[in-house]
Write a protein that binds this DNA or RNA. Sequence first.
DNA 1: TTTAAACTGTACTGAATTAGTACTGTATTT
DNA 2: AAATACAGTACTAATTCAGTACAGTTTAAA
Lengths: 159, 159
Amino acid sequence: MLRISKLTDYGTLIATHMAATPTQVVSATELADALGLGLATVSKVLKALGRHGLVVSQRGTRGGYLLSRPPERISIADIVDALEEQPFGLTECSAGSGTCTLETGCRIRDGWLRINTVVREALQGVSIAEMTPPPRFADATSPAGRRVRGPSRLVRHPG
Amino acid sequence: MLRISKLTDYGTLIATHMAATPTQVVSATELADALGLGLATVSKVLKALGRHGLVVSQRGTRGGYLLSRPPERISIADIVDALEEQPFGLTECSAGSGTCTLETGCRIRDGWLRINTVVREALQGVSIAEMTPPPRFADATSPAGRRVRGPSRLVRHPG
DNA sequence: TTTAAACTGTACTGAATTAGTACTGTATTT
DNA sequence: AAATACAGTACTAATTCAGTACAGTTTAAA
């Protein structure tokens, strides 16, 4: 369907929400309430994010989750990698290898690999700190007033 | 799964194959044989491509399909549009509208719309003529020797 | 020390989507 | 008239997704 799964969608939602208060421990319950999602669903997402080192968890009363690094350094690609099937690839042949029955004589694997690269760079080029629209009544001189202006900034090649 | 469907994959395969002999009428049977796919499957794909004006069909003996325009002017985005769910969108909210139960208070729709744009441009930026690797023993001065060199060319902004 | 909040891990079930195929009908050429 | 090839619809099995449930462990606070 060329669409991210709902779980991945929730992942970006949750991570973006956490990015708003990056130093604050938030519990799955709080996130579920704030975002209108089921607790079990939110837990499932956070667990996956934790496995991939994007959040760290704190057990017990007053426990919860915390972003493991500044939100500017967590990209949408990171979230996708944590929640979608790995490895990344728009087609079967460009992701794994060997499973495609057409391998022999396939002339377009090359093309798809190039497209993958560009798409991946697009996802890598957006951090969870950049997902939310600029605050409407923000003071333009405040740090919160800094904003991304359109897609041109999106494709940056991190390395 | 953030992956194109197999049908879409077949679509790019079929279109790319046809792009190699752009003026020749090819039957579904020939394509199925050449690509190692089922006839019914190939027919299904070609029908969808026809509905979207990418190929024209010719019935009867000696009938078959023909690209409706030069392969340089048929993009991967065209194939995707013909075979994947419409409209294009990596998330539910960035494709349609109204179906997302979280609409109210969703802060990231904007971000996903921007990402969509970039991904879509990547798909629009590659024609089915550019999918195959350059012929290995091609004369460098021949038209067939022209080639795309890496992803930088991929993101071109057609509009 | 007890209790409650909160994370951990696994498993399950219904729904939705995908993939591939079958079948009947129509058009065209030889 | 016959063979080839497209047109359209429908169907079934397999896969994937989405959401939830449950039993267990850790930690902080009362």
